[in-house]
Design a protein around this nucleic acid. Sequence first.
DNA 1: GTATGTTCCAAACGAATGTTTGACCGCAGC
DNA 2: GCTGCGGTCAAACATTCGTTTGGAACATAC
Lengths: 217, 217
Amino acid sequence: MVHNDTVERILDAASALFAERGFAETSLRTITSTAGVNLAAVNYHFGSKKTLIQAVFARYLQPFCETLEANLDARIGARAGADELLQCLFDSMLESAERVGEPPQRFMRLLGLAYTQSQEHLRRFIVAEFGAHYSRFTGLLKAALPQLDPVAFYWRLYFMLGATVFTLSSFDSIRAILNSEFERDSSLEQAVDLLVPAISGMLRVEQRPPGSGVPAP
Amino acid sequence: MVHNDTVERILDAASALFAERGFAETSLRTITSTAGVNLAAVNYHFGSKKTLIQAVFARYLQPFCETLEANLDARIGARAGADELLQCLFDSMLESAERVGEPPQRFMRLLGLAYTQSQEHLRRFIVAEFGAHYSRFTGLLKAALPQLDPVAFYWRLYFMLGATVFTLSSFDSIRAILNSEFERDSSLEQAVDLLVPAISGMLRVEQRPPGSGVPAP
DNA sequence: GTATGTTCCAAACGAATGTTTGACCGCAGC
DNA sequence: GCTGCGGTCAAACATTCGTTTGGAACATAC
């Protein structure tokens, strides 16, 4: 599995097709014919379809983790706010996607699939590859939100993850709808600019003591 | 496709298996053997696998739409707040799931799959079945958030949808993690109680004029 | 020139898929 | 008693899937 033209053509095609249709719905024959390579090339270079799926993720995850770590080191002090952390996270995502040379929404799409499709091997692979970096970020975010009890914080982490992955992975569809509805084009950067304050506000909502009302607007 | 024991056994099994593994990953043989019926029964009663998938959704969507409409009529005045509307939405979801007799997180899971799996026929079916009720709710919610411009509102609608579908559909996994981490069990109702104020706060965050900072906590 | 190892390729493999078939059963209506 | 009909069933259907195979093509090393 050396640096190789065939290998990269397969990764490119697989990445796009997986993001578009899902793993089970994308056959190796579709991938190889899109990539313009022989069917047997996948099993020769990657071993199996499962390993190919993992390789597609590794190509995104590795630059993303590196970029995130570097940005956290450079821009985040010991006591960072939730906004700075979120901005740092999304900047790293956009940066690393550019480094890989594929659209960020594709990465988000794949990440969403990793959660929703039944690919236990993939979840294990991602945790092994990404777990440490993920923990560093959530630790910093937790310290930035001391008013939340651990359980509430955990849930809000998932709210954030869901809002992010869901919207950014569907960015192309949403943009198409917005274009036809409001005749105004929008970029992924603009979507992130709307997402960051919204999520930041969601994270900072004061915890409701059981039975009380909600704060006035 | 009359009211029939075999039909309901198939729907039960298909609903559970689809939610667990996805559509493409669940074969008709797995469904029929789980349901204890003959393989040919699916094509006899439903016509095809696609139609079966739609029937699974119809069994959830129809009671949910009825319940939501009734609750909106009963509890929501001309000028309702975002909180009331959200509470009404989630109450309707929990109510209708109980009426169908299946766990709400299963419905959320299926809804998430409808978005992420490539099933164009299913999206068309859901829009046709559910579009009018969806528009009524979003119209009310938009009126409750007059400070948001239409595009920002649209995006926040998706943030809300993502946070909801993602977390509630993964409720079982998240609960398992929380149990092992904090030794405290949690119910779906408690998760909804955490979700409603968080989403409500996210929706009510003031729109940031381009280039300005964020509001203080 | 021969040997060696890597990469590519057409073809086939066995297994699994959604769907169709034709016989069979029970039961109503005349 | 026979007929028609809704429902079930085992078996087979044609595809499609991931994977394997054996050899051709090519470059490099001796």
